[in-house]
Amino acid sequence: MIPDLSQLLILDSLLREGSLTRTAELLGMSQPTVSRALARLRIHFGDPLFVRTGQRMVATTRALALAAPIAAVLDAARQLEGGPAVFDPLTANRSFGLYMVDGAVVNILPQLLGGLARLDNGASGLQLRCVHIDPGSIEAQLERGHIDLAIGRFPQLVNNIRRRKLWDDEYACVMRPGHPCAGNLDLDGYLTHRHVLIEMEHTSHHNGAVTRKLESLLEPARILCHVPSFTSAAHIALHTDAIATIPLRLAQPLARDLGLVLARLPIELPPLQLALYWHERSHRDPANQWLREFAHATLLASDAKPHAGHAESA
């Protein structure tokens, strides 16, 4: 006998959440009900479907193979509903998965969390979780629903992926207070002092191109080290005489929080365009629609506020 829609909903949620408890909460069911449904599904498919690893339930190969067909069935069933689904952020209990690089976690996530806190004075049952995955699997994770939204610059995402531009950003420099170039960073000073470069080509082809350009401009002796993130570069700059070249919208809060000196970049680098990315599968999902509109409106409203001066400052 073919599993009914309620069982397929449970299996689809388990594939997303990896948790009986979380699935029960999201679907408004008791945990024993979810456990009984999983037992019936295991018998039907002749496979354990999930094995427990630590606190999580990890999907078997058979369960992963069922993910796409189950999603298609559920999407088709939703299209047969009598009226449009409604998502109310003030009453919903939902965990949204986000993917972004470290700079966006530092700069963008606090803005989104602030926006959630302003929803009915923080009474919302919504949560944001930044997931750590192989950057090469972003597209697949968006398709599976493990990620609801990716925020950053990912031009490699093209298959059934939609995008919405947030803004263009430029680059700036940060350095420790008392640095010889603090307050007077010109081209000569930039080229003759040491630098910490960011090696994130596995995550961002754009930043990889920026790093390659800086390597072509700087003598090898002027490169102190390479690090895998923007925030670690800022911390290295704080404790050495190295200069870190990072996106301006990230440089500003890092300079403020770490007490770094912010300076204009005396060379030309290509601008960095950030956007929201989501899968076609989620395009008409009311919860995902709300998330996209919330993220876009929150981030652009923050972007419209006056930024700290771009000139050198202590």
Rank of each mutant, 00 (worst) to 15 (best):
M29I: 00
S6Y: 04
D303V: 00
R42Q: 11
A295I: 01
L224E: 09
E25T: 14
N288T: 14
A92F: 08
P3L: 02
A314C: 13
G83S: 15
G178A: 06
I246F: 05
H193W: 08
P247H: 08
D88T: 03
F45P: 01
I236R: 10
G178L: 06
A85T: 06
E199A: 14
R222W: 01
H44Q: 06
L300A: 01
R163N: 09
L214S: 03
L113M: 09
S282Q: 13
L254T: 01
L300W: 08
R78H: 13
H226Y: 14
K305P: 03
W278M: 03
Q127L: 12
N207Q: 15
L8T: 01
R176D: 03
A287C: 08
H307D: 11
I10T: 10
I10C: 04
L224P: 05
H205E: 13
G152H: 03
L191W: 10
A221D: 14
M175Q: 07
L300R: 15
I267W: 08
A37L: 05
T53S: 15
E139T: 05
R94Y: 07
S204F: 04
R212I: 10
H283L: 04
T61F: 04
E170F: 14
I133E: 12
R284G: 11
P89T: 09
A263F: 00
L142Q: 01
G309M: 08
A295K: 04
K213F: 14
L274G: 09
P220R: 08
E219H: 11
C225M: 15
I151N: 02
G125N: 07
S216Y: 07
R256C: 06
V34Y: 11
W167F: 05
R162H: 09
A150F: 05
R212M: 12
A209Y: 10
A76G: 09
H44I: 06
L27V: 02
R264P: 08
I108V: 15
L20I: 13
G136T: 00
Q55E: 12
H279F: 06
S124V: 13
A39C: 05
V210N: 08
A63I: 12
Q252C: 04
Q55M: 04
I70Q: 07
I43F: 13
A37H: 15
V86W: 11
L197R: 06
P270I: 02
L9I: 07
T211E: 07
C173K: 07
R284V: 07
G114F: 01
